[in-house]
Simulated assay, not measured.
Amino acid sequence: MTQTKYRQQGKALLWKSEILLAKNTYLLGNSVTVTDIGIMPFVRPFAHVDYDIFYSLP
C-alpha cells in the first residue's frame, strides 16, 4: 500500500471521528468509553507524520 493510500484511510478515520464528536461529547455518546481511550494514541501520530497536510485538513 502506498503512503497516499494510508493517508486517505487515516483521513477517513479522522473524518468519521469528527462527525461523531459533532453529535456527542465523546465518540459514542455523552460518556467516555473504551473507544475514546483506545483511539487517542493513534490520532496524535497522524499530526506528526506530516504537519502541513494534517493541519490543512478541515
Rank of each mutant, 00 (worst) to 15 (best):
E18G: 10
V32S: 04
F42K: 06
Q3S: 09
Q8A: 15
N30P: 02
P41L: 03
L27Y: 02
Q3K: 09
T33R: 03
Y6E: 13
V43Y: 04
M40R: 04
N30M: 02
T4S: 13
L20V: 01
L27D: 00
D52Y: 02
P58T: 12
D50K: 09
V34F: 05
I39W: 04
Y55L: 04
L20A: 15
M1A: 14
Y26G: 02
V49A: 07
G29F: 03
L13N: 02
K11G: 01
D36R: 08
G38Y: 05
M40N: 06
F42D: 02
N24R: 08
Y6T: 10
L13M: 09
I37R: 07
T33S: 15
S17H: 07
G38I: 00
F54K: 00
P58L: 09
Y51R: 14
P45H: 03
R44F: 13
T35I: 10
G10A: 12
R7Q: 10
Q9S: 09
I19F: 07
V49M: 06
L20T: 04
M40V: 12
Y6G: 08
A47K: 06
L27T: 00
L27G: 00
L13Y: 05
K5T: 13
Y26M: 04
T4I: 07
P58V: 11
V49E: 07
S17K: 05
T35S: 10
L27S: 00
Q8R: 11
I53Y: 15
T33Q: 04
L21R: 14
H48A: 12
D52L: 03
L13P: 00
R44T: 12
M40W: 11
I39R: 05
L21G: 09
A47Y: 12
Y6K: 14
L14E: 03
V32N: 00
K16L: 13
L27Q: 00
A12Q: 13
K5D: 14
F46D: 02
D36K: 08
R7F: 08
V49T: 03
V43D: 00
F54M: 05
F46E: 02
Y51A: 10
H48W: 13
R7N: 06
S17Q: 09
N24K: 02
T35H: 04
M1K: 09
Q3T: 10
L28M: 11
S17D: 03
L27R: 01
K5P: 00
Y51W: 10
A22G: 13
L27N: 01
T2Q: 07
P41F: 06
D52N: 03
F54V: 00
R7V: 10
G38P: 00
P45A: 09
M40Y: 07
K5A: 15
F42T: 07
N24S: 10
Y26S: 02
S56I: 02
S31M: 03
P41G: 05
Y26K: 05
Y26T: 04
R7S: 08
E18A: 14
M40K: 05
F54C: 01
I37K: 05
E18V: 08
F42Y: 15
L57H: 07
Y26D: 06
L13E: 01
I53D: 11
Y55E: 10
Q3A: 13
Q9W: 11
